[in-house]
């Protein structure tokens, strides 16, 4: 299996069109590594098992993914299956929730539409952020400066300084929160990971700060790799700028997975997909999810 993956990678690397995508050495290495993990665990489940699974979610049998793309209906199925597996196997993180959307397309009134959301995740361990709160203070010149007098006139008049029932806390280390959304891209026909980071008070984190929170390898890898990069774009449903991992290459590398000898059942599409993209943002999925 491993050899086959390598050969596929090599083939893709050498041929003209797709080769360009993978020509980068670091990306190739990264890919081989992950493909191995993913494909080994993604061996098609025994037939009966698959059917049972399909029966459970009451859907007609779905085709496997060969071309790396996913239909909108397939996305809903895959999203449910992914969230379900995540809940069962991921003990450390809260579950993903499916955010349904009021249908906006008049053509197919009953078509389901929505996205997956995982909110308020604290990525980096709090102990590590010794002095990040210092940096936060000096954020932006455009913030209204608060003058001394304004602080004083409040203290003078209020009772709170003499209320001993208020616990005086040390200024807490600022935690960084992350929200993740998995949104279906109709134009690329693949899932897209959107994310954003913010401080406890709500101030959004800049990409530079976010990069410090990402796993140490991610940033360099993203810089060099040809399979994705972080960009900022308007969230298709929330209409505010979020960061996202660009979906240009998704189709190609999902294709690579299926070319490696294992057809990906639609239900497992998001699991395989997330096993790669999740690592970029520090969300590893447990091994059991891939079985």
């Amino acid at each position: 299996m491993r050899r086959r993956v390598r050969e596929n990678v090599r083939r893709l690397t050498e041929d003209g069109g797709g080769g360009r995508l993978m020509e980068d050495e670091a990306a190739r290495f990264y890919f081989e590594k992950h493909l191995f993990v993913t494909t080994v665990s993604l061996q098609s489940p025994p037939e009966r098992e698959t059917e049972r699974f399909r029966g459970l979610i009451l859907l007609p049998p779905m085709d496997s993914v060969n071309d790396g793309k996913l239909s909108a209906e397939g996305f809903c199925v895959a999203a449910r299956a992914f969230a379900d597996k995540w809940k069962r196997h991921n003990q450390l993180l809260p579950p993903w929730s499916w955010i349904p959307l009021i249908n906006r397309t008049l053509i197919v009134p009953n078509k389901e539409e929505g996205y997956l959301s995982l909110e308020k995740i604290i990525l980096s361990s709090l102990e590590e952020e010794a002095d990040s709160s210092e940096k936060e203070v000096s954020t932006d010149d455009t913030i209204l400066k608060i003058t001394e007098e304004e602080c004083l006139d409040v203290t003078a008049e209020d009772l709170e300084s003499i209320d001993h029932t208020i616990l005086v806390q040390n200024v807490e280390k600022e935690a960084h929160y992350y929200d993740f959304n998995v949104v279906y891209s109709a134009s690329y026909r693949v899932p897209v990971l959107y994310f954003r980071g913010y401080c406890s008070g709500g101030q959004p984190l800049s990409l530079d700060v976010i990069k410090e929170d990402l796993p140490s390898g991610s940033v360099g890898l993203l810089l060099e790799s040809k399979w994705t990069f972080i960009t900022q774009e308007e969230h298709p449903y929330l209409n505010r700028p979020w960061f996202k991992l660009h979906p240009c290459g998704t189709e190609e590398w999902i294709k690579l997975l299926s070319a490696a000898g294992c057809q990906i059942p639609v239900e497992l599409y998001l699991v395989s997909w997330f096993s790669v993209v999740g690592q970029v943002v520090g969300l590893r999925i447990p091994h059991e999810m891939l079985n």
Binding site: T139, L159, E160
Partner: peptide, 22 residues
């Protein structure tokens, strides 16, 4: 009597946020 104004990093000052980037 009542109390309850939120402290900002331990101080009695308002908070502010800049969203120019978004």
């Amino acid at each position: 009597n009542s109390v309850g104004w939120e402290l900002n990093k331990g101080k009695r000052v308002p908070r502010s946020i800049s969203l120019a980037n978004s």
